[in-house]
Structure formats: structure tokens, C-alpha cells
Design a binder for these strands. Sequence first.
RNA 1: CGAGAUGUAGCGCAGUUGGUAGCGCAUGCGGUUCGGGACCGUGAGGCCGUGGGUUCAAAUCCCGCCAUCUCGACCA
Length: 573
Amino acid sequence: MKLSKLVGERLKEVPNGAILKSHIYLIRAGYIKQVSTGIFSMLPPAQRVSEKIQNIIREEMNKIDGQEVLFPVVMPRELWEMSGRYNSIQEELLRFKDRSGHDMLLGMTHEEAAVHMAMNTIKSHEQLPCMIYQIQTKYRDEARPRGGLIRVREFLMKDAYSFHTSQEDLDNYYKKAYDAYNRIYKRIGLKNFISVRSDSGIMGGKVADEFMLVTDAGEDRLVLCDKCGYKANMEVAEGKKEENTLKEVQEIEEVFTGNAKTIEEVCHFLEIDPSNTVKAVCYVTEDDKLVVAFLRGDYDVNEKKLAKLAKSEIKVADTDKFNLVAGNIGCVNLEVPEDAMVFYDTSIMGLENFVTGANKEDYHIRNVSASRDLKDVTFNDIALVKEGDRCPVCGEKLRLTRGIEIGNIFQLGTKYTKSMGMKVSMPDGSMSEPIMGCYGIGIGRALASVVEEKADDKGIVWPMTIAPWHVHFCPLRLDDENVEAVAYELYKKMEDAGIEVLFDDRKVSAGVKLTDSELMGMPIRVVISPKTMANGVAEVTMRENGETNFIPLSDLLSELKIMIADEIEEIEK
RNA sequence: CGAGAUGUAGCGCAGUUGGUAGCGCAUGCGGUUCGGGACCGUGAGGCCGUGGGUUCAAAUCCCGCCAUCUCGACCA
């Protein structure tokens, strides 16, 4: 490819509003162009990377007996009513009408389509297990896209769906998919990725794993133990809290706290530490039942954990509706409706002489004792892990960090086969709903993640396995007839030899060529100039570490081929 | 969806107390340079997001709308 003809431009300046490395460089280096919020076009180099990532994914999916299919982007309302999701999913599902007024939607995921395909074709247990997958555009009407390709509304995704006759069979396959995912990330050149057990939602699945690129740029919070390897998404992470030390129990007394409502205000007013308080956070369930959560003042509610205990989605309650005194709610003599649920976090266990609300305006109470005043309550873990908590497995201090979710796999169970009525005949002649698993990877996000992990202060650094071109060929002084002749000859030879080469055929200064090559990130740069030609060599530089070698022109092709092959082998081994 | 901000040339930005728009980069042409974003000369390129209002006069002041960004909520 000749750079002079490549569609797209290199920019010197940071695009307005871009924060993430991947966002900045992908725009500056001419890989992507924004069309609308969360909607991007891929320019030729990005498309080449995307195709290489797709092919690696295809290979790995095919290795675990996947069969590639293609579901439609547009689906009719009826299909999604079968699973109940036409109504259960809100604005994120983009709905519209066709010319005859029929309700249609844009696919944001394809469980329904997968079951639709399978239920007309898979009839017997003998055809199982079976996995079908596609690589196709998804549309999710995200409320707030961000970070360039990290969180978008329209994106290319590989999604796979497997069908099984038993949980055991699903477990076996799930393990295979898990291994395939690890191989995929390794092969596209990522290093600092992990998998974490995650929340599969109230609606069903039992097991779910998320693959995360560990980076400060991530939007998911992670909890890791460097000693024993415990790792979890913040949503499900457990932490051992520091135990409360026993103290002599004193008599409860009421204290006037006036306008001090929040924990911060109360602590400031009484000159105490938040860890000596117990706060209340109130929620309502889907059917408007009150849920009160008590935690030590220095902890926050993990709403996912609480929702699980309450067996319902929850949202923050309007305390007035339940005659609660916002800011003065306490765990002693709290009056709540019959059907209300009250939960106590384990951080309160053994806590003595603490401050909590008095359940009346302007007052708190002090010297409350868990052992005396909360004798009969059950303690549950409903708090978010915080800095300083210890590993639930080995007791070491946990590390809190962030990650970008680069893929997930989970066991769906029979949610879709049951709701849509897919059954297969079993060995004993009975009919049964297959158990499903599903497995997703966003292609664009994977691409951006590689940039995020590997880019340096000069630009993108592509791994050889997914680089748009292996070699960035920069002849300097193309106005020199000798250089020009040799350059075009070398370019042709490289292409003929099957080396993917981007040829900077522009007659511009050395600085422009070299900085552009670093910005665009090809793994190998080949420079020739009157200087190198006088010695009969080419200057070959690795983008990743800047290592430079001078290679005789006569050996250049064979050396490049070896370097490319070695590099790919190194990444994939 | 809540909070904050921004819309002026392809990109990044300036634009005074209201007086019909400029800078840098990129870009066309001519020339001199040229191994780390060269220089000189000369062009082209703007419905100042959009609709209304105030005014003799609006990029500038007021109101609505739209778009975009950041933080948060949400995220099958």
C-alpha cells in the first residue's frame, strides 16, 4: 500500500475531548473517524486490524467446534416477545417501525435469533453439543458512550451460543471456551489481562466470567489479591473487613446533632471517625417494598449484593413515603412496615459504642452496642470492598484497580430455550430444553484495548499478529533518483514476497516520515537513504523497543520474513 | 437520565465595550532545502450549530431547539 493513496490523515493535535490514549492515537493516526456519538467509521488501517482480530477469533472458535453463521441485524418484535425481552429491556434496545407499521428492532445481542435458528434444526440430543457463532454489527442505544472505541453504540461483535443436554456437558464446554478466550487475547498481543468471576444478574445464569484488561483507563472496578490470585469484579467481590475491637459497653444516650445528616457531617459535629458509626441506606424493591441496609459508616452499599438478598431489582427509596427521618435513621427502635426487609452488614458485627440515628429529627444516639442492641440480627455481606480490606481466601491486603471488559462468557441455563419453547429428544425418549452458554467479544474494543496497553508517547505499537502492515517502509530523500529507483524496486519485491508493507512514497522530509511511522505503529520500520545505500544496507527498527539493525539490501527480504515469523511465533507461543 | 461545559475553515484555537471574521497546522501552485514534524512567495477554503428575539447594526446580548464532550446513574 502506498501511503500517498491511503485514505485518512495524520493529525498533529489531540482531538477535542479525547482523554484515552487509544482514542487519541486512533484518531490522530488516521484509523477511525467519528460519525455521531458512539458511532465510528473505520478507515482502511483499522479495517485491516479488525479483520486480523476477527480471523484469530474465527480460528479459535473453529478449534472448539464452532460453526460460523450470520443472524440478521433487524428482527421483528415477535421474536423478542418470545423471550420476554421486548418489554423487559428499556431504551437500550432501539425499536422502529417498517413501512407497513410493523414493530422492528436492531439486534443488541442474538440469543433469540440463535434459539430461533437452532430450534428449527436441532431436534435430537445426538446433534448436541453444538456451538454457533457470528461476527456482526450490534446496536445498543447506550446512554453515554465514551472513550472512543471503548464504549460505543454500534460495534462489531463476535457472539457465540452453545447448546447442551446436561449441566455437566455445559461445564466441560464452558472450560474449553474459557481456554479459547485466553488464547485469543494472548494472540492479539495483550499481556495484562485477567478473568474475573462476575455477576450474572438476578435473571438466571449461574456462572459468568469477565475478561478484563487491567488498566487505569478502565471503567470497571476490580478487586485483586497479589498473593493468592483471588480476583473479582467489584460487583461480586468479597472482602474481609477489619474486625472491630471489643470495648467496654456503655449506656445508650441521645445526642443533639441538629442539621448534621450525612455521616461526614455527623462525624465532624461529634468529632468521631466514620468507623464508629452505623448508617442506613434505603431502597425499594420492584413491588415497592422498603429495603433498609445498615453498614458501618466507612463502608458503602454494594447494590448488586443487596439486590440478590432482597431477590429483586432495587432503587433508592423516597424515605418520606415510609415515614423515615432521612439523615437520622438508626438501627435501634426503627419502625418500618411489616413487609419491609432490613439487612445488617458484617462490618457492624462486634461493633461497640457506635453512633447511629435516633429515628427522630435532629438527634442521633451514641454508645450503641452490636452485642447488646443487635443480639438477634443476622449479618450479611452487603458492602463494597474498600481499600484496606483483606482477601477472603488468604487474608492478604486486597488491591483495588480498574479494568476494561474485553469479553465475557456465561452460562445462560434454560432461560431462552424454555421461554421460546425449544426442546430436543433425549436418549430416554423424553423431550427436554437444552442448556445454553454464550460467549462474546467486542472487536473494536479489543482493538482499542491493544492500543491502550501498548501505545507509548510517540504513538501506537501494534503486535505483529494484528498490525495492519508488518513493515512501514520509509525511503528518505525520494527526490534522489537512486533512492527512488531502489525504493520502488524494494517495495515491489516485498509485496511479491508476501510481506505486508506500507510504503511511504511521499516526497516529504525525514521528520514527517519518521514521526508518522511511529504514530501509525507498524512493528518494523525499514529506512533507506543515500547514506544507507552507500553502505548497501537498510536500517531496520523495531517499533516496540527502538532496536535498530543495519541489514545488507541483498538479505533484506529473507531477514524481514524471518523477523515477522519469529515475532508472530513469540506472541503466540 | 442528573450535573457541568462546548459549538467559529479539514484539525486545534483566537475574536475587545455589538460595527459583516482571523491565527497555527493541513491543503493547491512556484521556488530553495531535506536523516527527526524545513523555509520563502502566492492561492483556495466560513450560513460563526440552528430557529426566533433585542438593535440602525449580532459570531458577540436574550430565549428555544439541536449537536458534541466530561463526571455520575444505567449497561442485555
